[in-house]
Amino acid sequence: MRDRLTLSTLGPLAALFALILLGAGLNENFLSAANVTNVLARSAFIGMIAVGMTFVITSGGLDLSVGSMAAFVAGMMILAMNALQPSLGVGLPLALAGIGVAILVGLLAGLANGLLITRAGIEPFIVTLGTMGIFRSLVTWIADGGTLSLDFSMREFIGPIYYGGILGVSWPIIAFAVVVVIGEVVMRHTRFGRYCEAIGSNDKVARYSAVKVERIQLLTYVALGLLVGFATVLYVPRLGSASGSTGLLWELEAIAAVIIGGTALKGGFGRVWGTVVGVLILSLIGNILNLANLVSPYLNGAIQGVIIVLAVVLQRRKSSAEGR
């Protein structure tokens, strides 16, 4: 089941190119550097999370909590930075402290999910449905139902993490690209990636083949938590705030991107670059609908829904025709 350039792998790519052509035809600013940067940078959060989600889903798991987790991590990061500001002052140490807190909280949140699933043996759907509610309520509670805002001077200081860049390429895009390359290499060229696919295909056989199933699964959730942490590090500098509505429905967008990209929802086969295509497709739909007044804005959600279903249907039909 290795990837070859068949129709089924080309499906999502074709859809992406069709969208790009459509966008370019509808608005001349679509391909401008500013718009391309906007779309790629805003894809970076969900994109990084979706790469982690690809591994979780490939190994037969699921994580519904990532959106709430991102909100919670963002809340903790802001809270920690505001609390440390009097002692550390505005500057690099405080920024690093905030980044450290975000990554640590993400890691621990992922670990909690992973341990509940692998050690306590509870269904991933149930565990992460539970933690989804827990993380979201915690951030609403911490924020007193309002919005947690980073101190203004500190926001100015860390703003460049989102808005800055090198050679005209902004940091979120670079970080996203690095995560994708690492993800693709791990999935295709390491034992870990192969174990994920083996467990997702048939965990019993994997276990009989001396694969440490629980440990691999735990690692996928920890890695996903870590990536949520990284994504939050990029997210917080953008607006410098977190609230109960931060990261709403990110989990579904990430899962949709993974599935559009050709990873099997029931596990056993993962495609990291496909996930990237999926994320870009979802971002572009929103972008194009904003740029061109094609339909009533009430119908934006419907258009996205149609394209998600269509992308998967095309893929499945082609792949079954090839006997996969």
């Binding site: 705030s241 509505s245 709403l248 904003n290 740029l291 804005p297």
Partner: peptide
Amino acid sequence: LDKQHGDWNRDKAFTVMQDYLSK
């Protein structure tokens, strides 16, 4: 020029405004 839904949400409004500015 345009009226799109930002859903009373900061992130959504940020995205919509970015697209307004491109357009």
